[in-house]
Write a protein that binds this DNA or RNA. Structure first.
Lengths: 148, 148
DNA sequence: GTCTATAACGTGTATATGCACCTATTTGAT
DNA sequence: ATCAAATAGGTGCATATACACGTTATAGAC
């Protein structure tokens, strides 16, 4: 009774579909530390060294405003703090000691998820997938709107 | 003391990152017909022949509840209608005449976006990317929770 | 030193996503 | 025919995502 998924000519739909499923896969693991995949990604890119919102957004290639909201649960959990910088417009972000501990816990769980993903999909295939995704992003960049 | 936050070899983060950017690319075009990429995908998978929510969810490999909400704007716009089926539990979905017309308009715009994407990233590379994404999904499926 | 253009953020709005939980209907065993 | 199990679907909740618009503060021109 299950209709096989249609072969999509749309690269965007393909990406969204795979991303949905892969996210579900990782989050099966990350649930044990109370994190979503994006939240883990934020923690992994934060440190005790303060860093501005915009700088973080650029490193993650995420929209600034997505970050503003995505950080809220992490701040509420006491893992991240925001302080004003010399430039009073900036909100410098850094990990608290609890945040460092949570990042360490999360890293271990993430590592197991990544290992299991590579076991399920074949290690060399995942390496090739990673490379293809990076290459795609590089090729796409010139066609994207300037992120001002 | 603190580990420098280097980009991690996380396949999930890579996928989410590329998906974000590719979605932005497509939606630059789809804005002209008032559609998001996911909404276009829904329209493209609907027809005048009625189809149950669950059947559509399986074809798109989307969560059932995501679809419930994603269809609302399309229904509100008068492009999609829901009728009860012989099985009174089902909500059969089909396109209205306006929906068929909108789908046609959207297809033309999408096709231009896809062409431009292939021009920007190289046609053969996009073909390889599409294949890799499909292959990844196939390999991942056995490791995913049963979608009951 | 003032004034304005720019830069760094936040908020409002609309959709996207999936899990937990709930309701209504149908099926299947007795 | 009856009732429990299974099925189709919805709702509450918590993020994820990005664009338009507004606010505050710094920087550059004069």
């Amino acid at each position: 009774m299950t209709t096989p998924p249609l072969p999509l000519p749309c690269t965007g739909a393909r990406l969204r579909r795979l991303t949905r499923r892969v996210t579900v896969f990782y989050e099966q693991y990350l649930r044990s530390v109370g994190l979503r995949l994006t939240q883990y990604s934020l923690l992994a890119h934060l440190d005790t060294t303060p860093q501005s919102l915009l700088a973080l957004a650029e490193r993650l290639e995420m929209d600034r405003t997505t970050l503003t909201r995505g950080l809220k649960p992490l701040v509420a959990a006491g893992w991240v703090v925001q302080h004003p910088g010399r430039d009073a417009r900036q909100r410098l972000l850094s990990l608290t000691p609890d945040g460092v501990a949570q990042r360490a816990r999360a890293r271990a769980v993430w590592a197991q998820a990544q290992l299991d993903l590579e076991a399920a999909m074949d290690r060399s295939f995942v390496a090739q997938l990673n490379h293809t995704l990076d290459e795609a992003l590089q090729r796409l960049k010139p066609a994207l709107p300037e992120d001002n």
